[in-house]
């Protein structure tokens, strides 16, 4: 019952990217199963865990709640676009140094979400970090070390307290 596929043009991690998808495929599904960018994770597929967080036109969104066809013309950043050939992003480094991941499945979503926060607000308080990241569930860490990593990364990135 395959429907006619739609040709979608986006900018993905800074590069012009085109794909074909059906209207019932989510952006998450397109990223993972069409483009094989599996760094964006599926946790619940209904917008309640944040594991599939990507940055779309400057806003973080749950990619499970965006249709692939809706991404036409969008500029999308996934976890695969966060590090550069020069090295890890300071947030990624801070997650490692603070042991802010255990199983690591929620980590890409947390990093993409944290990056959007720190780009907007270089000096977030602990309370602000917790508020911003409340849409991202982690079941391993109790969040303690994630909060520390994000605050740590903010300091590294130059936003002094």
């Amino acid at each position: 019952m395959a429907a006619v596929k739609t040709h979608v043009r986006t900018t993905l991690n800074g590069e012009a990217t085109e794909y074909l998808c059906e209207p019932n495929q989510s952006l998450l599904e397109v990223l993972r199963d069409v483009l094989f960018l599996t760094g964006t994770k599926e946790g619940c597929n209904d917008g309640n865990c944040g594991a599939c967080t990507v940055n779309m036109d400057g806003r973080i969104v749950d990619s499970c709640l965006v249709l692939g066809v809706e991404a036409e013309g969008s500029d999308i950043l996934t976890i695969e676009g966060v590090a550069t050939p020069e090295g890890l992003h300071p947030i990624q480094q801070a997650f490692l140094e603070n042991a802010a991941l255990q199983c690591g499945i929620c980590t890409p979503g947390f990093i993409v979400a944290s990056k959007a926060l720190l780009e907007k607000e270089p000096n977030p308080s602990e309370a602000r970090v917790r508020h911003w990241l409340a849409g991202n569930l982690c079941r391993c860490t109790g969040y303690d070390k994630i909060v520390k990593a994000v605050v740590d990364a903010a300091n590294t990135m130059g936003g002094k307290k």
Partner: peptide, 23 residues
Amino acid sequence: TSPIRHDGADKVTGRAVYGIDYH
């Protein structure tokens, strides 16, 4: 001590392949 985990870079860059990622 607390060295950086060996699978760390893979897990913060999205490269680590989990069961759900296999294709």
